[in-house]
């Protein structure tokens, strides 16, 4: 079964544990400026939204890369940047409509979410279930269940 990251912004508290987990997993350091997932805080609306790569099937970044440095991981379906091939041209950062591929000045390469090889650290670290790693074909299952629970099967009494 292919899985994908599923984000429910309503559950996000803005604690940034996901960003720390991501930077620690990928860089061995707690450093949110190196995280591949970002939480955006829309203060005046009281909304926090975690955002990262959704692993497009026909990925713009992959198509745009002139050196084939971005390839599909057979196990997870993630579009993975191969750092040894990446030349840091940043064309993928322009191609991505969502901004989720970003350049890392320190390494001179780009980075994006690679689903941590199938065990995403962000989902594991999220204390509220705002980020989960679920069946890619059924990311809507929880929402369906919630609405199903509200479905009124009793006949309405007329006023």
């Amino acid at each position: 079964m292919q899985k994908s990251l599923h984000i429910d912004p309503n559950k996000c508290t803005g604690c940034l544990q996901c960003e720390m987990a991501c930077s620690y997993e990928n860089h061995g350091v707690f450093n949110i400026s190196k995280s591949r997932i970002k939480v955006f805080n829309f203060e005046h609306e009281g909304r926090k939204v975690p955002y990262t790569c959704t692993q497009c099937s026909d990925a713009w970044c992959m198509t745009a890369c002139p050196v084939d440095a971005i390839r599909i991981d057979a196990g997870t379906g993630a579009k993975v940047v191969h750092e040894d091939v990446c030349v840091g041209c940043k064309v993928c950062t322009i191609a991505c409509p969502f901004g989720t591929v970003n350049y890392v000045a320190e390494s001179g390469k780009v980075q994006k979410c690679d689903l941590c090889g199938g065990e995403p650290a962000c989902a594991d670290a999220c204390p509220t279930g705002a980020i989960t790693y679920v069946d890619a074909d059924w990311t809507g299952l929880d929402k369906m269940r919630a609405w199903a629970g509200k479905t009124d099967t009793q006949p309405r009494t007329s006023a």
Partner: peptide, 10 residues
């Protein structure tokens, strides 16, 4: 409207 965590707070 909602609750809000400080940095790192679970």
């Amino acid at each position: 409207v909602t609750n809000q965590a400080c940095f790192g707070c679970t």
